[in-house]
Design a protein around this nucleic acid. Structure first.
Lengths: 222, 222
DNA sequence: AATAACTTGCACGGTACTGTGCAAGTTATT
DNA sequence: AATAACTTGCACAGTACCGTGCAAGTTATT
């Protein structure tokens, strides 16, 4: 049951636990979308019973998790608008990379179950963006012409997911991951590897933000 | 229970049903690895109960399914040996395309469960082949140098799966599918789309067998 | 220190699936 | 036509999960 309408005020640690549960769910459901609430609860350091203090049922937890992620991705993606389709595609890829976790959760859950409705919305928006960029890219000759735009769009999309998944399994510098997602997206739409490399180098919008001197990079594993 | 040691001879329709079950399992488990035996049985036009007449339990059915597929793929892949790594990679891709169903089942099942042992074997063999081709390709300069060979190998592998999955969802001519898998593999290792196209065209080994005049093609959807 | 806000454990009923036994059927084979 | 080879339906025990009620605890807040 949810708590009776609080007469005093919700406690601070309660909301903390709520977050903990969502975080745990993100981890657990990512490796097994069918995992039990018990598993989620223990991952969060709580008991199965207390899950129901925060979420009405399993579906609500999942839904909350997904919609939160969807919102993040969607808002991140709103700002991506660039006249050149190739650049736009690369930017979309780059943006997705920065939201890996959210994207992965959505992707994992979107497959099966009645969550399609939630994912379909934002996931559909992404799809439209990608497809749009591709149609334009094919029109202006910057992208491959040997595949139908729909198929190419799906391939780009799925390939991006592959990269994101691989990246989380075999960690990558944030910067390297960013670059890799762009490289692969460009590769799928037809650029050769040198071509893709020089393209990224030539576009300042695609450069890694050299903002602060404290650049947190982790590993060097390509 | 399995049937008591037959005193006469196994019936013909029994083995037919066994096949039907395996076929059904291939279909059902492919869209949901956790599907119930009831689902498999009805797909095969049989009752859940009779499944246990052919397989000791769920795991045995799955195992049988996977190992059969693994054998097919493995033997198909044995014949693939070509000095040029690029061609070899394309050939591997092409071969996998011809075994799509088996490959998909293995991939779907390999993820979870205690079937990793079975899949790991043949799946590992494929991996080694791919990695080997890539290492050589990078060495002789025909493949991209901006990614570590291990990562590239994984990306090629996963991308191939993506293509196969997409192809089964949005049907393709056998010939077109063959071409697409090769194109994508070559694309991931760094070729531009025109480059990949002409490469395939230039290599007779990669040409679609123009054997019989009755060439069964189905659709024209790119 | 008092109290409401939470967590926990246990017990319970409900669902969905597996694996098995058995009796009553059908159907291929001889 | 006889018989063994199968299929089926039903009933049952076993497991794993969900969602809930409640009583007894802990802990943040006032």
């Amino acid at each position: 049951m949810t708590f009776p309408s609080p007469a005093r005020a919700p406690r601070r640690d309660a909301t903390e636990n709520r977050e903990a549960l969502l975080a745990a769910a993100r981890i657990v459901f990512n490796r097994d979308p069918g995992a039990s609430l018990e598993a989620v609860a223990t991952e969060a350091g709580l008991s199965r019973r207390s899950v129901y203090g925060h979420f009405a049922n399993r579906d609500e937890l999942l839904r909350e998790l997904v919609t939160a992620g969807a919102r993040r991705v969607a808002t991140s993606l709103e700002s991506v608008t660039h006249p050149d389709p190739l650049t736009r595609l690369a930017l979309i890829a780059s943006t997705l990379w920065r939201e890996v976790e959210s994207v992965r959760v959505m992707a994992v859950v979107a497959v099966r179950g009645p969550l399609a409705s939630h994912t379909a919305g934002t996931l559909g928006a992404i799809r439209r963006d990608v497809r749009d960029a591709i149609v334009h890219g094919q029109a202006n000759g910057s992208m491959r012409q040997d595949l139908a735009s729909d198929r190419l769009a799906r391939l780009v999309e799925d390939t991006a997911l592959v990269v994101l998944e691989d990246a989380t399994r075999h960690p990558l510098t944030a910067r390297e991951g960013d670059r890799l997602t762009m490289l692969m997206a460009l590769g799928v739409v037809g650029l050769g590897w040198r071509e893709a490399g020089t393209f990224i180098a030539s576009r300042p919008e695609l450069a890694w933000p050299a903002t602060h001197p404290d650049q947190t990079d982790e590993q060097d594993d390509n």
